[in-house]
């Protein structure tokens, strides 16, 4: 459930398919630039009803790393 929500946010935020989303790293595609990054964070915060720390926003640099951060620091189970 959460994994699907997480994936959908990526797909919608950056207009990419599932395979692309899952391997995505920050600044791999034009859509995931610093503007896209803050929109992604906002979408994640709304969806999971969390408030991320600035350090986590900075460390959030790939699809995989993001999952790790959400699981470890915000108790979201995937």
């Amino acid at each position: 459930m959460n994994a699907e929500k997480y994936l959908n946010i990526f797909k919608e935020s950056f207009d990419v398919d599932e395979a692309t989303a899952k391997g995505l790293k920050y600044q791999d595609i034009p859509a995931w630039d610093s503007v896209g990054h803050m929109s992604l964070i906002a979408a994640l915060e709304d969806t999971f009803d969390i408030m991320m720390d600035t350090d986590d926003i900075i460390d959030f640099n790939s699809f995989e790393k993001g999952k790790e951060i959400l699981a470890k620091n915000y108790g979201i189970e995937f």
Partner: peptide, 11 residues
């Protein structure tokens, strides 16, 4: 704006 956005939430 972008630089400072990181300090804000629900912007």
């Amino acid at each position: 704006i972008l630089g400072f956005s990181i300090f804000g939430a629900r912007k």
